[in-house]
């Protein structure tokens, strides 16, 4: 899966979690929890869909690595490629 494909999946899911936010203007470096007003439960929902859709289970200790869109893309790429190798 390319980074672009992965980005499309994440934006799709984030769009469901925060339907009122315009994702087109989302800065990849910004803190998703601020930009999308995700509380702890909504963020947990995000982690849940990553598990359901991509099969990546993110431990709590790794949460901070996924606070931005770019961080999340890096993290997922790493884990998806680890799994292939």
């Amino acid at each position: 899966m390319t980074r672009d494909e992965l980005r499309r999946i994440l934006l799709d899911e984030l769009g469901r979690l925060a339907p009122e936010v315009d994702l087109a203007s989302l800065d990849e470096q910004s803190d998703l929890r601020e930009a999308l007003e995700l509380d702890s439960i909504s963020f947990l929902n995000f982690m849940t869909v990553l598990d359901k859709r991509l099969g990546v289970v993110v431990p709590e200790a790794d949460y901070p690595m996924l606070y931005s869109l770019s961080g999340a893309l890096d993290y997922l790429e790493r884990h998806l490629s680890d799994r292939r190798s």
């Binding site: 439960i41 947990l44 990553l50 289970v57 709590e60 200790a61």
Partner: peptide, 17 residues
């Protein structure tokens, strides 16, 4: 909470609330 959640998938983890 950390110990409990470590063994659980995201859909079953608890938040402090």
């Amino acid at each position: 909470l950390s110990r409990t959640n470590a063994a659980l998938g995201p859909d079953r983890r608890l938040v402090p609330g």
